[in-house]
Computed example of a mutant assay.
Amino acid sequence: MRKTLFTCLALLLPVLPLLAQSSFVKPVIFGLKGGLNASFFTKDVDLFDPASSGNDPSFRRFLRAAAFAGITVDYMVGERFSVGAEVLYNARGMAYRQKNNSVIMIGQNGAEQAYNYFKYKVDYLELPLTAGYNVLPVASDNWLTGYVGLAPAIAINKAVKLDYPKPNAGPWEGQADKSGNLDGVRTFNTSMLAGIQFGGVPSFVGAYADLRASYTLFPVFTENNSLSGNNLNTRMLSFSFGIGLKF
């Protein structure tokens, strides 16, 4: 009996590390993530297009910085390969700046240039679908995954806002900011995306960082030109940095 017991133990010893390792491998991993986007139109649009009639040469392009947040789920196809899905609220868009010579701004060095800011706000509900590969050793406590995918999206907020400078000299209070609906935005769009994630293996909860770039497959607007004939045929490019938890 004792000899049989020792024989069984001897046969099990090489297998125990594999059993211990597999007990900590989670085939399905859920998570939360959030962060900041920097997005812009790939071409100047409508009145901001230098080729448009009546264009103000003082216009300058700027990124729109906005937030995103959502939930994630990853399925481990193998030790290194994974597929994932996310549900994100993703605020994107574009910004333009125009000189305003009617407003006096006084800074530490005297008079300063004042600016109007035009903001295109196009916020999406996205469903990114990804495939990733972990380049670090399987036994490592960390993972570094490169991934690619597609992100179908629905535009749930389409707005434009004009922010006027607020004078800090003189009796004039300046103009009130204006906002309204942004017409002609494509409701359904899809983006190509690629990125990298780095984090700790979640024995219970693991933190990670995410860098991503995405590009819309279809133009942001449904028409190539506005009613005045100005350009509307532009895509959107976004770069994002996020942090999250997986458990």
Rank of each mutant, 00 (worst) to 15 (best):
F239A: 07
L182I: 04
P137K: 03
E112W: 01
I71H: 09
G229D: 03
A207G: 12
N116H: 09
D123L: 08
L232C: 08
S228Y: 14
F188I: 13
Y89F: 13
A155H: 11
W143M: 07
P14M: 11
S226E: 08
D183S: 14
L129A: 12
D183Q: 05
N90C: 08
D210H: 09
L36M: 14
F48D: 11
N231S: 08
S52F: 14
Q197H: 09
S191A: 15
A139E: 01
Y208C: 10
P57K: 02
R60E: 09
D46Q: 01
T130F: 06
G184K: 05
Q197D: 07
L193G: 11
L11M: 11
I104Y: 07
L18Q: 00
S226M: 04
N225T: 13
G195I: 04
S39Q: 02
K33Y: 12
D123V: 12
L36H: 05
F40A: 08
F6Q: 11
P50D: 01
L47D: 13
P202Y: 00
L5W: 06
T42D: 14
L9A: 12
A91P: 06
T42N: 14
L5I: 10
T7Q: 12
L150T: 02
L227D: 15
A213G: 15
L32K: 03
R92F: 01
G107M: 00
G174H: 05
N142R: 10
K161Q: 11
T190V: 15
G84N: 02
E223C: 04
